[in-house]
Design a protein around this nucleic acid. Structure first.
Lengths: 242, 242
DNA sequence: GCATCACTGGACTAACTGGTCTTGAACTCA
DNA sequence: TGAGTTCAAGACCAGTTAGTCCAGTGATGC
């Protein structure tokens, strides 16, 4: 991969050292100046070789600190809020979304409370059947505060990511979601939509999503096929406190 | 807000912990020297990150005493890792735990992988039936790395909090847990233990728990009655910087 | 009430790091 | 010959580190 002969020899020498375990995983390499001298090349040349190794994932750079040998056990997946669409794409599947209901209606007392709006203030009701690669996986029931996302009232949300559209059309970015999940049995309607027997286990996720400034923007309930979805999160234990 | 990469990573790590409620409001953070070591940065760098957080009002400094989390937090309680015992007590119920199985055995390949130990290295297998106020609620199946908690091999864990005993007897504090939940149907054994019909929905939680230094210490699978448990978490959406 | 002592953040230094840029020597090739 | 490329050498910069020393805090024991 290295271009010129000198660069290549430096590259090869480094590969040698790495493969022979001269540098332990996680360890810092000697400074560029030392390395360059030891390999008999200039720093510029050395850096080309190092950069190549970085692109190959065999080294990691950290500015003002040094070059590090990657640990073979890489970090744990952070607990992040992933939209259905992102989740599907991360798995290499095609997300779909069929709109079942999309209308503006008055909010219920409970919704108004959670969304911090006036009771019966208008919300967009959005029910969708979500699928991956054509297989129905989830039924979403969402209520969005109309005032905070007016452009969504009559947008076509078929096969689209709600989070994306929220950001693109309304400039609203979701930052945090209070999520709770529960196991339940599929009722008749749900069973029909998801294509499972009545009484099958489903994972019911309830969410209240907030923007960066902690304004609640939507509440949603997701009914996932029990065998098609797993909810993942990192939980931190508080330090012993009062 | 932090400019340089290392400072920024320290800053982000601290924000993570704060948002996840690792440090309770009003609580003192670990000393700068400890924190710096845990985050893998120097004290000077750490202090830059801490100062940024102070300017943002997310931390308060007190010279010669330490760093404190401001009390005025208004938002919803963050999602924290709560042991079954803590959860029950928070609800004013009495937690119970009947030991079904407690033995040392060789780890499976999968377990060894997740726990970062040698395959067939010894683990403590611990199965318990958890209840609240006498009602069975959950069946726990846990594998603990024997080497990291030897005192637990023959401890009596009836009606006791595993997390507490881990800390008290082994000096091992759980700091983070990678949790995943899904819905399933109760098989015959589970149904009998939980006192529900076969096929009832159960919430299956799988956990890998880590200590402060990111060493995995145990993996556990919890089977909750679907109608008796709800899993709650706050999810954060990664800042759309990258 | 007092002295002690471990620990805390505060402040500062010297050395080192990679990032960037400039200059010039050595070489290749039309 | 002359243009273009490769590489070496060096200087400078801002970020980072390890270390030292200090003064204030708070718990302990007398």
């Amino acid at each position: 991969m290295a271009r010129s002969p000198v660069t290549d020899s430096a590259y090869q020498a480094l590969v040698q050292e790495l493969e022979h375990g001269v540098h332990a995983p996680g360890a810092r390499l000697p400074g560029e100046r030392d390395l360059a001298e030891r390999l008999g090349v200039s720093r510029v040349t050395l850096r080309v070789a190092l950069t190549t190794l970085e692109h190959e994932g065999r080294l990691e750079r950290s500015a003002q600190r040094g070059w590090f040998v990657p640990r073979q056990v890489i970090g744990e997946p952070p607990s992040t809020l992933q939209s259905f669409t992102e989740m599907a794409r991360a798995r290499g599947l095609t997300p779909t979304a069929a709109v079942l209901v999309q209308q503006v209606r008055a909010s219920t007392l409970d919704e108004a409370d959670k969304l911090r709006i006036a009771p019966s203030a208008p919300v967009i009701q959005l029910d969708r059947l979500r699928g991956m690669d054509g297989t129905p996986v989830c039924v979403d029931t969402i209520a969005i505060v109309l005032d905070r996302a007016p452009a969504l009232a009559d947008a076509d949300l078929t096969d689209r990511s709600l989070y994306d559209e929220l950001e693109r059309r309304c400039g609203v970015a979701i930052h945090r979601s209070a999520y709770s999940v529960q196991a339940a049995a599929a009722d008749e309607r749900l069973a029909r939509l998801l294509g499972v027997p009545v009484g099958s286990p489903v994972l019911v996720g309830s969410e209240v999503a907030y923007t960066t400034d902690s304004t609640p923007i939507l509440i949603g309930v997701n009914h996932y096929r029990g065998d098609a979805y797993r909810f993942e999160a990192d939980l931190y234990r508080p330090t012993s406190s009062a």
